[in-house]
Amino acid sequence: MDELTAAGITDPDLRASYEECKRLNALHGKTYYLATLLLPKAKRPFVHALYGFARYADEIVDDLASELSVEEKAQVLSKWGNGVLADLKKGTSQDHVGRALIDTVKRFDIPHEHFEAFLHSMTMDLTVQEYESYEDLLEYVYGSAAVIGLEMVPILGPLHNDAFEAAKKLGIAFQLANFIRDVDEDLDRGRVYLPLKELDQFGVTREMLEERVLTPEIVEALKFQIARVRQLQAEAAPGIKMLEASSRPCIEAASTLYCGIVDEVEKIGYDIFNHRAKTSTARRIRVAGAAFVKRQLISRQSNNHGSPQG
């Protein structure tokens, strides 16, 4: 049985929308897509829908229509975003990505404010080029990453309300790991996501980052940021056991791979200016393989006990 049929999605237009979201996920979110494959088939399309929405908004800001001015991009994002938010209120959509999103939100009763927060952060990306403090950065990270975790939990199956707080922390950890890896790339876009006050504690200025020369000060500043990622990951870990058993291998693998970006930063000697830290295919396969075996065991146990989770 294919994923859409397993998820009870039969309408042809709706299936086409979910397929488009899956295509965006497979094309742009290789690690995310790999982790999604560890979920039961019936859950996967809904995760693809969330990714499709987030990716499409991100493309408007960074990739699509790169020749447009900031004002023009803001208009495109606002028009599309407001259209999706209006569709959420109506409960229907004609948008090729929005249709699947609205269906997912209705099925799992996902709060609309998560999508408002996400679009707010995408709008910030158009004009905000640096963050003074970690608290300032959290306004952006909440909407760009924490809410993704919060949106996912109803699909994954929460067994306890604390699963939401854990998901929020894990989403933030994923985003912060990306910021560490992408310092060089973000500078090309005129942005610095590492909080300026925290950089200053180690004698690092934005101008030093712009020079793109690895110094002992920058190394220490990166170590500080890496420690925070690992702390958030550790705090979020108990929350994985608060999800349905069939969802746990996926999230464990995602945690290992996404937060593992900081391990790769260490392996390249913190030289994020001359090397892109990325998880090797071998490691991805190893982590996903172990998670797949675990999922098969859970599925078998569930079937033996007559549970629908597997």
Rank of each mutant, 00 (worst) to 15 (best):
M1F: 01
L4R: 12
I9F: 01
T10H: 12
D11H: 10
S17P: 01
E19W: 09
K22E: 11
G29P: 05
L34D: 00
L38V: 09
A42W: 12
R44K: 11
V47G: 03
L50C: 06
A54Q: 01
I60H: 00
E71V: 13
E71S: 13
K73G: 11
L85N: 00
T92V: 14
Q94D: 14
V97Y: 12
R99L: 14
R99S: 10
L101R: 04
T104E: 05
D109R: 14
V141S: 08
Y142W: 14
G143T: 11
S144K: 04
E151S: 15
V153Q: 06
P154R: 08
L156S: 08
L159N: 09
F164I: 11
E165I: 05
A166D: 03
A167C: 11
K169E: 03
N178R: 11
R181C: 15
D184H: 12
D186K: 05
E198G: 02
D200V: 10
D200C: 10
Q201W: 09
G203S: 13
T205V: 12
E207M: 04
M208N: 01
V213P: 00
L214A: 09
Q225E: 13
Q225M: 09
L232P: 02
L232F: 13
A236D: 02
A237D: 06
E252K: 08
L257K: 04
Y258R: 00
C259Y: 03
F273E: 04
H275K: 09
K278C: 04
S280N: 01
A282E: 07
A291K: 06
V293Y: 04
S307F: 11
Q309L: 14
